[in-house]
Amino acid sequence: MGKYVEMIRIRFLMMLAYRTNYYTGILIYAINISAYYFLWSAIYGGKSSMQGMSLGQMTTYVAISWLARAFYFNNLDREIAMEIRDGKIATELIRPYSYLGMKAVQGLGEGLFRLFFLSLPGLLVVSLFLPLEFPEHAKTWLSFGLSLLFSFIIFSELNLLAGVVTFFTFRNEGLLRAKRFIIDLFSGLILPLSFYPDWAQQLMAYMPFQAISYIPSMIITESFQGAAVRDGLLLQAAWCVLLWFPIVLLWWVAKKRLVVQGG
């Protein structure tokens, strides 16, 4: 356990070395969110609510979705694909830790860094000039925190899965890009899933993507109430467990047929 905690710490410090990037990051985030705010104001165009959400809730939804993304987002799929292509995977595999586990905690280190140096200051900045609505109940915040942790786990699991697939295909740039596109669209990052047509919503209900962004953002805007919060969290937990099986299986097969390309 100690070595994993150490790995989180090292990633955190690595990111800290590049922290100047994040000052520009906060500025650009603020511009982005304000542009979204005006765009949504125009879309609402005087209507008091759309799909059961007020403009204030929508603004909060958008702002929180992007901040949450800074926490759960990582490039583990690309890192794994690159290590397989370069043959670095061979040295990684003889080290005394679980490779996938180590990748996951590295992602967590990065995520924690962005949470403290990008998301929280970014949230402070935009709440100065945008009418964000935050819940008063501590329970909502707790559910949101738990939900965000699940988001990270599910997003990372999908990344690990896509990364491990590189073992079988060697080149999978296309797959990785397609995955990013699907997650952008179906996770509820760009707009709440309740806006999609019914057939699309029914389709998405069977996919893990809504658990990444839609559920935590609906919890923090209090668009989910009572039982809906509990169901959302349960769904996230179920996906966390379900996605674990294909990873373990593929990883087990992959290690058996590992071919190191040159090196």
Binding site: A42, I43, G45, K47, M50, L191, F195, P197
Partner: peptide, 10 residues
């Protein structure tokens, strides 16, 4: 998707 819910944007 947005224009599924509104007819005019400004």
């Amino acid at each position: 998707v947005v224009f599924g819910h509104t007819t005019l944007l400004h």
